[in-house]
């Protein structure tokens, strides 16, 4: 294992994060705080409890997931797209590194950043609503698993994209709607049929449900199902990344 290379890529990417501290960390914290002010304090006060949890507290796991999904995708896709765009990718492609090492560097850095943001948002949420975490180990497991999975997805997006527009479009038109409709702000039990069944095809439902279970012990779908679905998506993304490196798709002529 070329651990110097993994460390070099990882450090390089983390340096990018800290160089753009405001955009990377402060922005998601502010936007999440706004959600709490609007949905938690202003509107939430007039909402009834869901599954025995106050509305403000209920939306915390969903908001964390929403941020993690978008941040993981955006960080990882930019991480690999920028060198592709500027041409500096030549160095990584001509280096004695395996695809696994490249992915560990780029995706590891993007996932680390997402976990950091998730932790900061949780801490921020603590200022607005009383937080309790029933299953901390499961909570961390979901946080890390989701960050890694969606960073892998972002990596795929960054390799596939051949313009900045494509880089923005997928998170905006696909991921954000899926996160909003995946039960960030409501329990899917509140939906009438057939929407409830249709929603079960949304992979984000399983992430949010499992993550929420780790906080309050209540979930829309079984936690084992959530975990399996998340792992399934991770394996699917890893398989696509493997294919990218095997074929040189959009990386090598």
């Amino acid at each position: 294992m070329n651990h110097h290379a993994i460390a070099a890529i990882y450090r390089f990417e983390m340096a990018r994060t800290f160089r753009t501290l405001v955009q990377s960390i402060v922005a998601p914290v502010i936007s999440t705080s706004l959600y709490f002010v609007v949905f938690g304090s202003a509107i939430g006060a007039r909402m009834t409890e869901i599954d025995g949890v106050s509305y403000g507290a209920f939306i915390v796991p969903g908001l964390v997931m929403l941020s993690i999904l978008t941040e993981s995708i955006s960080n990882a896709s930019f991480g690999i797209y920028m060198p592709k765009w500027s041409g500096t990718i030549y160095e990584v492609l001509s280096a004695p590194v395996t695809p696994l090492e490249i992915v560990l560097g780029y995706v590891g850095a993007a996932a680390t950043k997402s976990v950091l943001i998730g932790a900061i948002i949780l801490a921020t949420a603590g200022f607005f609503v009383p937080l309790q975490v029933a299953h901390p180990v499961v909570m961390v497991a979901f946080l890390v698993l989701t960050s890694v999975t969606f960073s892998l997805f972002g990596f795929i997006l960054g390799v596939w994209a051949d313009g900045f527009e494509q880089l923005q479009i997928v998170p905006l038109l696909v991921v954000t709607p899926l996160a909003f409709l995946g039960g960030s702000f409501y329990s899917i039990h509140m939906l009438p049929e057939p929407w409830r069944t249709i929603t079960l095809f949304n992979p984000v439902v399983y992430l949010i449900s499992g993550f929420r279970w780790s906080f309050y012990g209540v979930s829309d779908v079984g936690v084992a199902t959530s975990l399996l679905m998340t792992l399934g998506f991770l394996v699917a993304c890893a398989a696509v990344v493997g294919w990218i490196f095997r074929t040189g798709y959009r990386l090598k002529a």
């Binding site: 070329n2 110097h4 290379a5 460390a7 070099a8 890529i9 450090r11 390089f12 340096a15 990018r16 160089r19 500027s86 041409g87 500096t88 030549y90 160095e91 990584v92 280096a95 004695p96 590194v97």
Partner: peptide, 24 residues
Amino acid sequence: PQELTTDAFETVTATVTFSRGLFG
């Protein structure tokens, strides 16, 4: 390479150190 492709925001030392690490 032929094309002048460099990072933009990194310092000279950082980018050269990165290259050394990348090559193990």
